[in-house]
Design a binder for these strands. Structure first.
Lengths: 158, 158
DNA sequence: AGCCGTTAGTTGACATGTAACCAAAGTGGC
DNA sequence: GCCACTTTGGTTACATGTCAACTAACGGCT
């Protein structure tokens, strides 16, 4: 920490660009999603994860781990989605503490209706603007960064 | 919108990776920043923008535009930072409605103390993990995406 | 069976972002 | 000069996320 090499021009461009992209791209895609489907970004993530499971059901615990969310965040968000009829909570047979989050028919309809527009939005604002090489590199970068973060966390609790 | 091409494997990997990176990388860098300097991510952004200006002063309006923040968000955040003595508000001579945001000595000290650790954190978790080619490509991707978004907005209000 | 540390999920207090509205001050056409 | 329109900055109401504390249930061990 004593002698920080400052970022050179290219490094700074990448970092600043990443931050601005995060700010504006995400905002745009969230806006599109909300306008087209009335869903928020977190809504979509939850519905997407649930609909990809076999029986449209997931333990809160597992779902949170899969989505990389805190249990607290997921619990609160599920409560909000429950009020809107997108999901329900059911008692878990195997573990009396547990809660199964279940996708309702309404929730399934919502995600199926939202998906095409959402994919189109992601294409329009990101994927279709990039060359195949850039797409590949973006995937590589994310994998590298995430792997490194996972290693860090592993070290922290040995 | 009618016929959405789904994302193929590579495209999906890039998109999912981007989302997860956004979630975890940002969280880690914010954690580091907070631990090392007691500043939040938005704090750092504001201080950084102010300290880069000539006279440590910026119209709220201009500053918001530069940072791509809403005026509302900036106004609220400035209030919080003002309470902690990092910045002050001054009346603007040229426009009685206006507010100049001024970096205090304490604010300058805070950003100068925080910068080395923050840069080190960005290097550790992102920049130093990537090849020069990947860094270049990340910058290219961000520029492409941001330019496209700017065009979109331009079209919206002709 | 009974105890103790761990785990699942929820909740209260709080930090921070957005959207809609407002008052005060500028600006331009007449 | 006067009136309509815009701009600036702030504020209120609300949505959403974090952290820490809490309850209840599980599970290994004796």
């Amino acid at each position: 920490m004593a002698d920080p090499r400052w970022l050179d021009e290219r490094e700074f461009r990448a970092w600043l660009g990443y931050r601005r992209m995060r700010l504006l791209l995400d905002a745009q895609i969230v806006r599109d999603l909300n306008r087209d489907s009335g869903l928020s970004d977190p809504d979509y993530d939850v519905l997407s994860a649930l609909s990809s499971s076999k029986d449209r059901r997931w333990r809160l615990n597992q779902l949170a781990a899969h989505m990389l969310w805190s249990k607290s965040r997921l619990s609160r968000h599920i409560s909000r989605m429950e009020e809107r009829g997108l999901v329900t909570r059911e008692e878990c047979a195997a573990d009396a503490r547990g809660a199964d989050i279940v996708l309702t028919d309404g929730g399934l309809r919502a995600i199926e209706a939202a998906a095409p527009d959402h994919v189109a939005s992601v294409r329009r604002h990101l994927i279709d603007l990039l060359t195949p090489e850039q797409i590949e590199t973006l995937g590589d970068i994310a994998d590298t960064v995430l792997e490194h973060l996972a290693d860090d966390q592993g070290d922290a609790i040995p």
